[in-house]
Design a protein around this nucleic acid. Structure first.
Lengths: 109, 109
DNA sequence: ATTTATTATCGTAATATTGCGATGTAAATA
DNA sequence: TATTTACATCGCAATATTACGATAATAAAT
């Protein structure tokens, strides 16, 4: 075993879970914050900032690109990574639908 | 290797990431939704609803309890799982701080 | 054409997660 | 006391993730 049984869930649940999973790593949270804070969006700067190997940063960037939340465009001789606003806003919406639900307490609690 | 280097990140980043990681599984999303929807909060009902083994459900519930988002109290001869409202609201706050940031686009994008 | 700079990918070792059956535990019931 | 009910925990096999060094790949500079 060891494989998540995605087929037993609704698409919506699988989608939300996979977004949260990608965001559920401190390196990727840090990368996103660094990009958002406008300090820079160059891969090498992230390597210096985080102190992880370049291969590792590249791998994390790939996962973030995979969910579409960032996008890389060639700028001079580097790649500039930016937040993909449209996708970011979709995520906000998905998260809000889930987290801003009315949470009622049961009788037994 | 294979170990996340948590020591290189800020506590805040590690905390947010670990919350998101726990939520980043479709079974746990489904369990939360099921509890929220008031249908039931008994472990056995979740076993039937999701179609996973009882041991597996129990494990997922343990992880959710671990971040404090749910709480189990003994009700008759079962355990009633409920959303821990205070923690849920803290999470909402943490997530909103992160996701509702102003996202500006760089010059190069 | 060669070198340099920047990023991506490959292969691998260490570790973590997922899911399950088997077993343990605790309380209610017969 | 023995049995049943409802969960929790253990131990395991399969798979996934994390991080890294080495090595492409690409484009600019020399």
């Amino acid at each position: 075993m060891g494989v998540t049984k995605t087929e037993i869930y609704k698409d919506e649940q699988n989608k939300l879970a996979s977004l949260l999973k990608v965001l559920g790593h401190p390196a990727r949270i840090t990368i996103l914050q660094f990009i958002i804070n406008q300090k820079s969006c160059i891969c090498n700067d992230l390597v210096e900032e985080l102190g992880l190997a370049q291969a590792t940063i590249s791998q994390h960037l790939k996962e973030l690109k995979g969910i579409g939340i960032i996008q890389g465009s060639i700028d001079w001789k580097s790649v500039c990574y930016c937040i993909e606003e449209k996708v970011w806003k979709e995520f906000q919406k998905d998260f809000n639908i889930f987290f801003n639900q009315d949470v009622k307490v049961h009788q037994c609690c």
